[in-house]
Design a binder for these strands. Sequence first.
DNA 1: CTCGTGATGTTATCTCATAACACACCATCA
DNA 2: TGATGGTGTGTTATGAGATAACATCACGAG
Lengths: 136, 136
Amino acid sequence: MAEAGERMTAPRRRVLSLLLETGEPVKAYDLIARFGEDGQAAKPPTVYRALEFLERLGMAHRIASISAYVACSGSAANGSAPHAAAFLICDCCGATREIAGPDQGSIDAAAAGAGYVIARTTIEAHGLCLACREAG
Amino acid sequence: MAEAGERMTAPRRRVLSLLLETGEPVKAYDLIARFGEDGQAAKPPTVYRALEFLERLGMAHRIASISAYVACSGSAANGSAPHAAAFLICDCCGATREIAGPDQGSIDAAAAGAGYVIARTTIEAHGLCLACREAG
DNA sequence: CTCGTGATGTTATCTCATAACACACCATCA
DNA sequence: TGATGGTGTGTTATGAGATAACATCACGAG
């Protein structure tokens, strides 16, 4: 997966660790604030560059509709290629679940009909989770 | 579609008009800059509020991955309900096509399995359009 | 006419993200 | 072993995207 010469360095590992600890989508500036083990914040480019790296390797995803980042819960975390991501996002409490994307093939087919070749697809489904519906 | 008491007022009409004129995704601050017929810019909340209204009625979509807005090219422009949106986005030239989303039912089913009820789904597929592939 | 809801105008500020440059690390190959 | 080139990091500064809060206005219902 990684291009030759790419390394899992300390800041990248640190950002991945923060994403994994959290388990839910995290804002970039939350990562920046929590970056230093000693409570020291990082500079924004440090974290954004790590996020770009992790996303490129399929170990993290950006959820654009809420401007947040999350560790990949699928097979990519184990070293497979970057993959299509699909998320269920609760608009009430923010709880987010990554699910299997529905039929990447149909998107590719529709794209081919329009002349496009697709590299990455993100599906973001907003609604309410069970707990928030029950809470009214 | 519209809630009782909601009106298509002048600023909303103006923003929709700008979106329709453009035909491609437009940045919010481009709308702000072009808002006045006389070249006067609008204040950000004017345009953001109009965009929120248009999106709520299914007449426009936000494409979060590129922070842009586009008039809906589907049936919603004619007055149907807000609908799932799917976009093909060229990472090279920015050309964007709205396509029929693949099987909203399968997303709803997957969401139900996780306890979620989905209100809005956006699919954003990034890749290259035909022209950009041919251009190398 | 008056009241309530929805819409607008305005100021200020907040959050998100990247450009640009200098320097450090590390494998490799002469 | 030391020159080299790609990759990564640190730092400063700034650009871009979006919203909070509050005052005022427009309009339809009663």
